[in-house]
Design a protein around this nucleic acid. Sequence first.
DNA 1: ACCTTTGTTTCGAAATTAGAAACGTTCTGG
DNA 2: CCAGAACGTTTCTAATTTCGAAACAAAGGT
Lengths: 117, 117
Amino acid sequence: MSTTPTPGHEVRGSTTGRPLMAALDLFGRRWALRILWELRHGPLGARALRTVCDGMSSSVLYQRLDELTTADLVTKNDDGDYELTPIGAEVSTALEPLGNWADRWAQSLEAGGPQAG
Amino acid sequence: MSTTPTPGHEVRGSTTGRPLMAALDLFGRRWALRILWELRHGPLGARALRTVCDGMSSSVLYQRLDELTTADLVTKNDDGDYELTPIGAEVSTALEPLGNWADRWAQSLEAGGPQAG
DNA sequence: ACCTTTGTTTCGAAATTAGAAACGTTCTGG
DNA sequence: CCAGAACGTTTCTAATTTCGAAACAAAGGT
């Protein structure tokens, strides 16, 4: 199967076809966000990508790569390495605030703790 | 089981404990991002939340709610409704650029198409 | 030709998600 | 207090997804 979520189509969890819902479906699949994140600094070969992703299973790697390629977020360059497309590169930019947020999150958990009132 | 990813701990897909990796694990679970998104405008009861999420299965809803609560992103208010915590509300803010991105993504797919050169 | 590294596919096992059903509680109206 | 309806939650089985290892082809180096 190869159901890559795309704007304008019904996706898992939403029938509206809104772009954000397609994005949330696509990015909600395991490792999808991570792959984009790891490619943000430049192209990587499949094996290298798997290594930086702490050894994600190859079957999932290729499935995600296929989805992300269909979604035009990732492409294979002339060297055979995977890299972000222009619009794919914008994802990691759009995700940057999330990186900052995560640090604040960590601090807030240290400070108050999840249970501490 | 109840393995809620938190900063400082080993999470699925990363052994470093970096906050972003914990976030990526937590948010990479089905419906997690969507729940935060749907709560961005205010509290919702469980049943209402399930409705706006296009009928996500209740078993997953409560599992996510549990994880997000443990992660201190969601809390249950005095009315019994679920709402974002302060740090949880910052997630949807941090996610806003992603909403804008998704619209550009949709346009870029319409314009060139995934396959079109 | 041989060994090594990389890219990719396949397959059974393990984990996650889906979906429906069920149960207790709360609220509304007698 | 008693029914009925809506809500919150838990539980169980089936389907889907992900894991993890193994295998094979292609490319490079010696």
